[in-house]
Design a protein around this nucleic acid. Structure first.
Lengths: 210, 210
DNA sequence: GCTTGACTTGACCGAACAGTCAATTCATTG
DNA sequence: CAATGAATTGACTGTTCGGTCAAGTCAAGC
């Protein structure tokens, strides 16, 4: 049961890093093998295809990075609207980190991969869809809680969550295309407006809290 | 001067269609040649490289489709805020058309290509950036006009335009990934909120940060 | 020390990749 | 008609692609 070889993990991480830094296109089997320092035979010992590795890599990224980060950001101990503030900071910090460590703003690997492979890799795209939906679920439940507390006044938390998520991903992809972390920040003001517009005028303090 | 052959145009259109329907990755020289019914020698008679064709194809798409459409949508004869309504309809109609004609929602070819090639094709990405900026310029000048007329109350039309544009592109890419035209519609409500929040008559200016 | 099965290796395959090129067709114009 | 240059053709190059495979190495359990 215990893994006697780290090759599998190295392959997963080489794949996700390459997708993120370059693209799924650039993540050729040879390139992944070289980056992970694994020979091609071993690659196909662990994964039945390149697509299978990519799918496993998405799960691995979610489990090791995205989910823990989201669990912290959307912690129940934080007031629901404050979670969004924290989310904004998180995305911005990551964009700045990216540019420092990789020389480029890289955006969201799920979103880039989803867009790139939507018309070619249905299996992979289905996995991306599930992960994006799960991500959006964090936003939705925070909005639901905020609504229940009377912090905001919106009709459909699900639709609002979809909007906010699209705004985040849109800004993040703009940041990637323009290689400019400040583009991520753009959505901070807009988010305030999207949620803020639903705040009853009697409690303007909650808007400032955000 | 007059074009004695349509091969060049056929190549431009085959390239843009393939990028749009599949991806830049799928747009191999052989695939483009087959789609355009042009032999490989002719390809390299008209274009010095695949990248050069892609860049020319972006210009061609802008000149023949995007610019005319935007000039109509953002016509000075239309009230500034009505232009946004028209823009929403345009994006939604296109998504529905896509699914009918191509079997898939395809999103924005500039945005998809930009995200895909951002870290690999600087020349192409620069062209994408210029086109996206020009697109955003239409939004910005409409917001400026709306502000001058007192229709909305925003601090920075430039930043607001960037937000709205990211929202549009984000929703559109979601629609591509989920192959669901309704995802494009999501931003209609949000857009109303983003702009509407600045309309003095309807909302008592809760968040004027933007 | 023998078996077992996870892991590793590097050579190999056919297809697809971007790009080259010499030879040829074709429409225009002097 | 002859000349010219744009346009076309298909065979070719060297490389990279995803994937296969036979022949191993190696550590643990009997």
């Amino acid at each position: 049961m215990s893994p006697v070889s780290s090759a599998r993990i190295r392959l997963l991480e080489a794949m996700i890093e390459t997708i993120w830094e370059r693209s799924y296109r650039a993540a050729s089997v040879d390139a992944i093998c070289e980056r992970a320092d694994v020979r091609k035979g071993s690659f196909y010992h662990f994964f039945k295809s390149k697509t299978a590795l990519a799918a496993a890599a998405l799960d691995h990224l979610w489990a090791t990075h995205s989910k823990p980060a989201l669990d912290e950001i959307f912690s129940p101990s934080r007031p629901p609207l404050a979670r969004f503030e924290r989310l904004i900071d998180y995305w911005y910090e990551r964009a700045v980190e990216c540019q420092r460590d990789h020389g480029r703003v890289l955006g969201c690997p799920y979103f880039s991969l989803g867009s790139e492979t939507a018309a070619a890799e249905p299996e992979l795209t289905a996995k991306v869809r599930k992960i994006l939906d799960r991500y959006q679920g964090y936003l939705e439940s925070a909005l639901l809680e905020a609504k229940a507390r009377g912090d905001i006044k919106i009709d459909s938390p699900a639709e609002a969550a979809a909007c906010i998520f699209s705004l985040i991903e849109g800004c993040s992809t703009q940041a990637r295309i323009h290689n400019d972390p400040e583009r991520v920040r753009h959505f901070a003001g807009a988010l305030e407006r999207l949620i803020g517009a639903g705040i009853p005028s009697t409690t303007p303090a909650t808007a400032a809290e955000l």
